[in-house]
Design a protein around this nucleic acid. Structure first.
Length: 179
DNA sequence: TGTATGATTAAT
DNA sequence: TTAATCATACAA
């Protein structure tokens, strides 16, 4: 994910942890009703759905699937170059670091909007990705719809017994290419 | 109008 | 385990 600040500065990070939500399950904001607050989740895919949680933090999703059907991917953690490993580890911290709030809700993810996603900088093999149940929900706890990069120290929570290898510089090819 | 509840985090 | 903090949902 990349953001161009008003100053022109680029901030970006590699998405290392996500969760999926869908209208078919109780933990999804679109499960019960379509309303003003979750309208974005029912809208066009490719936009950001940003909401306030616990009155303090914001969470950022990318709307997926199709229009009129609530599907989204919660961005839970990013690994950022040249910053402390856990600066964006957790959905609230991620939104905070990127300065994202409700004013970004329903914004289409594209460079012209100064907030966008690019293809993953490094090919990650399937065996580098761990799947688990989702975090912080009270319903639909059985669904294993959380994924994270096993080798990242920047995820919010690690599964028991899951080791973490040293960080690879290959995650940050933009930095590498500049060097 | 009143009250309970989070897709969280940091501190105890 | 709990406080912080507020928009939303739902009951009355």
């Amino acid at each position: 994910m990349v953001k161009r600040e008003s100053t022109g500065e680029l901030i970006w990070g590699v998405i290392v942890e996500t969760e999926a939500y869908s209208q078919i399950e109780e933990a999804c904001h679109g499960y019960r009703r379509r309303s003003k607050s979750n309208e974005t989740l029912f809208g066009s895919p490719g936009r950001f759905y940003v909401y306030l949680t616990y009155g303090i933090y914001h969470c950022v999703n990318l709307v997926t699937g199709r229009k009129d059907w609530a599907n989204g991917v919660l961005l839970r953690s990013l690994a950022m170059p040249n910053e402390s490993e856990r600066i964006a580890s957790g959905p609230g911290l991620l939104a905070k670091r990127f300065g994202l709030d409700r004013s970004y809700d329903n914004l289409e993810a594209k460079e012209a909007n100064n907030l966008w996603l690019t293809s993953k900088p490094t090919e990650f093999k399937d065996n580098q990705i761990v799947r688990s149940t989702r975090i912080g929900i009270s319903q639909a706890k059985n669904l294993r719809w959380r994924w994270y990069l096993q080798a990242s120290r920047s995820i919010s929570k690690r599964c028991k017994g899951d080791a973490c290898p040293p960080i690879s510089k290959a995650w940050f090819p933009i930095e590498r290419d500049r060097q």
